[in-house]
Each structure stands twice: as C-alpha cells, then as structure tokens.
Amino acid sequence: MMTALPSADDMSQAARSQKGTVVVAGVIVFAWAMWLSVWPVFVPASHWFEVKDIQVMDARVGQTPAMKVKRTIHRPFRGHWITTVMRKQSDETYTTFCTSSGTQDYVTDAMLPVDLDLDWWTWPRQCQLPAGEYKLRTFWSVLPVDYPEKSVRVLSNPFTIF
C-alpha cells in the first residue's frame, strides 16, 4: 500500500497556518514587552508611601507648634521633600513664609519622633512664626528604583500662632 504524498496545496495551507501562529505569538510577545515597559508609570506613589493627614497645633509666639502626622512607608525608597509654611494674608490668601527641603532614604521601620514639632519637620530651618494663621504644605518626590518618579502632596489644617 502506498501513502500519498501531501499535495502542494496541503503544504501551502500548513505553511500559512504555521506562519499565522508565528505572527500571533510575535504580537503577544510584543504586547507583553510593551506592557512591561509601560506599567511602572501606572503604579501610584501609595505603593511606597502614604500620608493620610498632617495636623499642626496652635501655639504661642516663640513656641514651636507640635504636630501629628499619619504616614506609612510601605517600601523603601529615596525621596526628596519640600516643606512650605504659608501665612494667611488680609485678603484671605496664603503666601509663602518659609520653606525647607532635603533628600533622604525612607525605610519601612522609620518612626517619627514622639514629640514631633514644626522645627523637626522643617529641618534644617527653623521658622520663627509671628502671630497669625498658617498652613503647612509638604511635597515629596518619591524616587523608587526602576520606576518613574512619583509625587505626594499634603496640606495641613490651618493653625494659629497667637
């Protein structure tokens, strides 16, 4: 008994089918590579760092206001921060009174001081605040390894120096 050899049409059909499979596999690999290169953009700053609240207490002139901050460091990262104390003007707007900045490494077991105050928060600068109403704005640039820069901005409650 003789076996028939595949016809040219059969071979052509098999080649087209195999070619289609290769093209589909190539598209899948390309899409996966694109996703891997783009997805870090969509990971939020909260993956590393969250600040739920910054409260600055009222104080007397010459006293440093106490603070309470609710923050969580989920993963270690290098970060740059800027703090800005803003003073309320007679027209109800706030203008910059003093600012401070720095860069540091953030680690998951880092704790804020029990006696946290504005001088610690604005280190190395001490803002000598005259009587008035203020707000504190803090900005962090989260600089995680192998991810694009992320940012966190938090505005405190209004506080009074009397």
Rank of each mutant, 00 (worst) to 15 (best):
H47E: 10
H47Q: 13
H47K: 11
H47L: 06
H47V: 03
W48F: 14
F49T: 07
E50T: 13
E50L: 01
K52R: 05
K52A: 11
D53M: 03
D53R: 07
I54N: 00
I54W: 01
I54P: 02
Q55S: 10
V56L: 06
V56K: 02
M57H: 07
M57D: 09
D58V: 00
A59V: 02
A59I: 07
A59D: 07
R60L: 07
R60K: 11
R60V: 03
V61D: 05
V61E: 14
G62D: 10
G62I: 04
G62A: 09
Q63H: 08
Q63V: 09
Q63W: 05
T64D: 13
T64K: 11
P65L: 09
A66W: 02
M67W: 02
K68V: 12
V69S: 05
V69H: 03
V69D: 06
V69K: 02
K70R: 11
K70N: 15
R71G: 05
R71N: 12
I73G: 01
I73N: 00
H74Q: 10
H74D: 09
H74M: 07
R75H: 15
R75D: 12
P76Y: 03
P76D: 15
P76G: 15
F77H: 13
F77V: 13
F77W: 14
R78N: 06
R78Y: 11
W81L: 05
I82D: 09
I82H: 02
I82A: 00
T83I: 01
T84P: 00
T84N: 13
V85P: 03
M86A: 11
M86K: 10
R87G: 05
R87D: 04
K88W: 06
Q89H: 04
S90N: 14
D91T: 09
E92G: 05
E92H: 08
T93V: 13
T93D: 14
T95V: 12
T95N: 12
T95L: 10
C98I: 06
C98N: 08
C98E: 14
C98M: 10
C98S: 12
C98Y: 05
C98T: 07
T99A: 12
S100Y: 04
S101A: 14
S101I: 00
D105G: 14
D105P: 01
Y106P: 01
Y106M: 09
Y106D: 02
V107S: 10
V107C: 00
V107W: 02
V107Q: 12
T108W: 02
D109Q: 11
